[in-house]
């Protein structure tokens, strides 16, 4: 097999990307929570669990997408990497939308009082 180069690509997701994704999801959840005047600790614990699950989901789905593209498609490596990056971004956007929908309709135990306080103002 003389002269045949075979490069082995590694995971496309790295620790700093994961950190950035976590920060962005935290900001999203916090913003939505603030808009609802949520104060209950239970609300924020659930929000934290959601973010953790979504960060892991993004990591897992990104890896699975990379694996599927690299293993099962016949595209050249450079093209595969572009597709993978697009997919990773789309997965992130999809999860953001899903998280927004969940947070938008998730009730809080202090929601009524928040509304009440708001109306007083």
């Amino acid at each position: 097999m003389q002269g045949i180069p075979t490069g082995d690509i590694g995971p496309t997701v790295n620790a700093s990307m994961l950190f950035i994704v976590a920060v962005m999801l935290v900001l999203l959840v916090a913003t939505l929570g603030y808009r609802k005047r949520a104060r209950a600790l239970k609300y924020w614990i659930i929000a934290a669990i959601e973010v953790s699950v979504f960060v892991f989901s993004w990591w897992f789905l990104s890896e699975m997408a990379s694996l599927a593209i690299i293993t099962y498609t016949g595209y050249p490596l450079e093209i595969s990497l572009i597709i993978i990056n697009i997919l990773i971004a789309l997965i992130f956007l999809g999860l953001c939308i899903l998280l927004t929908v969940i947070e938008r309709y998730r009730g809080t135990s202090n929601m009524e009082s928040s509304v009440h306080v708001f109306s007083e103002e």
Binding site: L18, V26, L27, A30, W44, I49, S52
Partner: peptide
């Protein structure tokens, strides 16, 4: 924000 972030870190740990 910090509370949620710290909880995320403590729950997920590994990332």
């Amino acid at each position: 924000v910090l509370l949620v972030f710290l909880l995320v870190v403590s729950i997920s740990g590994t990332p």
